[in-house]
Simulated assay, not measured.
Amino acid sequence: MTIEHHEPPPDKKTTIEIAGLDLNFHDFPSDTTTPTGGKIAKVFGFTPEQPAYVFQWRDDGDLEELRTQEEADLDKGRKFIVAEADGTNRISIEGEGLDWPADTISGSIIRKLGRIPADRAIYLERTNEPDHAVADADVVKIKASGVERFRSGKPEVWELNVQGKKITSLTHVISVVDALTRTGFDPDAWIIILKVAGQPKRQLSVGDDIDLRTPGIEKVRLTAKDVNNGAARPAPLRDFALLEPDESYLDDLGLQWEIRVSDGNRWLVIKDFPLPDAYTAGSTTLALLVPPTYPQAEIDMFYCYPPVVRSSGASIPNTEATQAIGGLNFQRWSRHRGAIVPWNPLRDNVVTHLALVESALGREVGE
Rank of each mutant, 00 (worst) to 15 (best):
T68E: 15
A52Y: 07
E244V: 11
P130W: 04
G362T: 02
R347G: 01
R221V: 14
R238Y: 00
F273K: 05
L194D: 05
A278M: 05
D251H: 12
A241I: 00
I105M: 01
P245Q: 06
V308S: 02
M301W: 14
R78M: 14
I91T: 02
I105D: 02
T319D: 13
D246R: 11
R238L: 00
Q331E: 05
P345A: 07
T15I: 13
R363D: 13
G264P: 05
E218R: 15
D348I: 06
P155F: 05
E244A: 12
T88Q: 02
T171R: 01
H132G: 00
I191E: 14
K201A: 09
K225Q: 07
W257M: 07
P35T: 11
A118N: 12
M301A: 15
E129P: 00
A118C: 03
R337L: 15
A287N: 04
P9E: 12
G264I: 06
E84L: 12
G198I: 02
L328W: 05
R310K: 15
R266H: 14
N24P: 02
Q163V: 00
I3E: 10
G198P: 04
I3N: 07
R266F: 10
A137K: 05
P274L: 01
G153T: 05
I174G: 01
V139N: 03
F55V: 01
T352Q: 12
K225C: 07
V290N: 06
V351I: 15
I109P: 00
F28A: 09
V227H: 08
T88V: 08
A52V: 06
R115G: 11
S334H: 15
N318T: 10
T32M: 09
A314I: 03
R347K: 13
K154L: 13
F302C: 11
R260A: 10
A241K: 01
H132E: 14
L63G: 01
A297Y: 12
W343I: 04
E358C: 07
P245D: 12
T104L: 01
A72M: 06
D136R: 09
H5V: 08
A281S: 13
I93K: 00
W57Q: 03
T352L: 08
Q199A: 08
A297L: 10
L250K: 11
E129D: 09
H353M: 15
T293F: 07
A339K: 13
